[in-house]
Each structure stands twice: as C-alpha cells, then as structure tokens.
Write a protein that binds this DNA or RNA. Structure first.
Lengths: 233, 233
DNA sequence: CAGTGGTCTAGACCACGGT
DNA sequence: CCGTGGTCTAGACCACTGT
C-alpha cells in the first residue's frame, strides 16, 4: 500500500476530497479522526485539522466534537456573490461610469421599507432616486431611503457629485445587512428611467444595512432586462 | 495604556475589526505586521495569523507577502447563497414537496445551451422538463439538458419517482460549475406550468456543471412572481 | 466519563515579491 | 536582498457532547 506522506494541508485536503469524489467515503460516512489521518498521511494533526476545517467551510464535511467528521449528505455549495460598488461594477466591464440624481427629498417611506428597517412612521428619512449609467446607457435604477440620524453628514452631501452608494460604502461601515434577490415587473417610472417597456422583467437587488442596532439605509437596485449576475461554484 | 492580553484568535479578530470600524486603521492603511501585533496583543504569532487570515477571507483585509496587510479599500462583502436541493428548499418552508415530469426526450439543445456546455450540435442530450410543487402549488419550473455520456445511469432513471435534481446531486459530484441569476419574462409554456400570466417577471437561476472537463448538465429554474432569495451579509 | 474536534504555543523554515 | 506572510511541527490543554 502506498503511504504518500502528504505534507502541506492542501495536499491533505486534495486527498480527502479525492476520496470523497471516488466514493471511498460516501455521503453520510464517518471518516477517520484527525489523529489517525495524521498518522496515515504522515503529518502533524494540526495540518490535518487545517485541511478538514477548510473542507468543512467549503461544505464538503460536517464536523462535531465527539461525534467526529462526516461527509456532507448534500454538497450544498455556497455561491459567493461579490457585491461591489456600482461604479466598479461598471468600470470592470470596461465602460465609462456616470450617475444622475433623479430625486432627493425628505419623507415617510412606504410601509414595506419601514418594516424592513424596523422604524415607525414618525421617523422621516431621506429619499434618493438615481440612475447609474454605463457608457451613457442606463445600467441600474436606484431607489434608496437613508436614515440621516444614524448617518449624520449624509444630508449635507452633494449627490450630483458623488453617488450615495459610493459615499456610504466609504464612510459608513455596516455591521449587519440583508440582501434580497428577486425579479419584478418594471413600474412606469422605473421603466422610463431604464428605457424599457413598463412591465418588463427587471432583475432586482434589495439591500438593508444596519450599524449595530441603528438602520443605515434600504436600497433597491433594478437592472434592465437581460442583466445577469454570474458566479463560479 | 491598556494591554488587554488577547488570547484566542476570535478576540484578536474582534479587536482588529473594532479598530477598522473605529477608523484607527482607515481603508488603505498598512497595519502592523504579525510579529508586532502578537507582541502587542500578548499572544503567539500563529494566533494573530489565524485572526488576520480570517478577516482577509471575510474581505476586510488584503494581505500580500512582503507588502504587508492593508485594510481593504471597499469592504466588498461576499454574499453567500445556499443552493440547496429544491426538495429541501421546499420542506424548509414547512411545505409538502412534490414534482411532476412534463417532458423527457432526446434531442439537440438550442445554441445557447450548447455553447454554455461547450458542445457541438452532433451530441444529442437528454431534455427534461419538470415542475416542482410546494403544497400542491407550483414552486419552480425546471428546464434541463443532461449529457448522458458523462452521466451513465441517468438514462435508465424513472424520473417520475425521483427528480433529476435529487439524483444528480446524490450521485454525480461536480468539480466545477457556473451559476447565473437573472430575471426573465415568462414564456407561454412556462407561464402555463407556473400558473402565471405570460410575460410575468420570473426570477431565474441557471446552473451549468462539469465533472473535470466533461459537461454534466445545464439547468434553468424559473420561480413564479414574488419569489425571493434572501441572504445575510 | 471519555473521545473528538478546537485552539494555543514557541520555534522553525519556506516562498513570494518589493526595493 | 531581506521583510512579510504562509505553513508545518510537536505537544499541550480545553470544550463540547455522545454514551
């Protein structure tokens, strides 16, 4: 029998993954403990630990103290989406970025937004509507409500110079957030801004962020028909 | 000056994150190297390394040998989406799962599918169309092409008993895949299956998977209007 | 209670990549 | 060249949890 002597946690991880793929260890199976694996692979337990921890984070293994390490029943891989600043998203496509402010006014947000942020109707927020452009063409429509109590300084911004998106990312680190992806039919206003037909299918991304317990902002980005968000598995 | 003596990599990570949030270390700044931090925090360099590695994976830091560790300019957080088997997705909502096979036949996939899989027109694939149900109501429409050369055994499956989705996940681990999210207007056939109006905005998820260099399957899942994919940041 | 993973340590060597 | 992160090691103790 071969005793390859795998040093380096990557090699150990590769070998374990190979055994899983080869079905030496089938989904649901208990695999040997760290000490035994270290002996077999000819390396320190720390190294095996690093490898197994990595595979567990990647979703291939499930580990529990005392219970041991099992091959995950369904390799539920996590798709990781990068959520960049729109400017960078546009420039990464090799296009020129611009943005246009459509509206900016104080007001009471609709119930859906209030409940997302956990605010009552008495709290006025700043409503900002803008259009992001790539090479002059509509790229995304932004509908945003900002809590100016949590974010002092925002009210004084000249949003024609700098997008709310960019300023907030640079200046207000959030501690918690929620992201919702969906499809929605274009309303008349959004359709006009994006230059598409009313009722067209828009890819929609809603994000709510908090700083500790205080809401920062709720924002909905609507992308014109055909927009795709791609990620590797 | 306080010298808290932080043992445990979590505590070190928390402290570093706190300094970033507090702007002690601003975006783009170089932070002290591991040896110095270990000295300051009163722990081993290994512990600091673990903490910084964690923060780098989470997107807060950028690390390069010799160049040192910098606070990331834009805290581009990665949203991680769980992509489960649909059955589990449905049952997690407390609903009863069912599926119905709509079509199953061999044929040549459309150009878009062929190019995604990197196949020429001479290779016939198996085309499977099915509907996933939650408590009897349409939950998702599935349009799938399977390469039966890469996946022997699939052709013999009784797809009325078991969904293609479930079988593939259990039996054909993929090594690489692509996930595309978008919105699309419902075609007549999809609209009828989902019980919505033609042209309605559908949330659409396309996935292509390979086993090494061989394509396994291309699948498009269409969710009825109102469907949302939610994740924490 | 006892087995298993989780973590810390102190020290060492290595690999990359600015200067 | 040489500073910085990347990793390995051997050993130790701890924390959780199944039996």
């Amino acid at each position: 029998m071969t005793a390859p002597v795998l040093t380096s946690w990557q090699a150990v991880a590769d070998e374990v993954l190979a055994r899983i793929r080869r079905r030496d260890w089938a989904p649901g199976d208990l695999i040997p403990n760290e000490v035994d694996l270290a002996g077999e692979m000819g390396c320190a337990r720390t190294t095996v630990n690093r490898a197994l921890r990595h595979l567990a984070e990647a979703g291939y293994l499930e580990r529990r103290r005392k219970a041991g390490t099992r091959v995950a029943l369904n390799p539920v891989r996590r798709a990781t989406l990068r959520i960049p600043v729109i400017r960078e998203e546009v420039e990464a496509r090799g296009a020129r970025y611009d943005h246009a402010l459509i509206r900016r006014e104080e007001g009471t947000p609709p119930l859906a937004v209030r409940s997302h942020l956990g605010l009552g109707p008495e709290r006025p927020l700043l409503h900002v509507v803008a259009l992001h452009l790539a090479d002059g063409a509509p790229y995304a429509h932004e509908d945003r409500w900002v809590d100016t109590e949590t974010v002092p300084g925002f009210a004084a911004l000249d949003l024609t110079q700098q997008s709310a998106n960019a300023w907030l990312v640079q200046n207000v680190p959030y501690t918690r957030g929620t992201l919702t992806l969906s499809a929605a039919a274009a309303g008349p206003e959004t359709a006009q801004a994006l230059g598409c037909a009313p009722g067209a299918a828009l890819f929609t991304l809603e994000r709510t962020t908090w700083k500790e317990a205080h809401p920062i902002t709720w924002v909905r980005l609507s992308y014109p028909p055909g927009h795709r968000l791609v990620t590797e598995l």
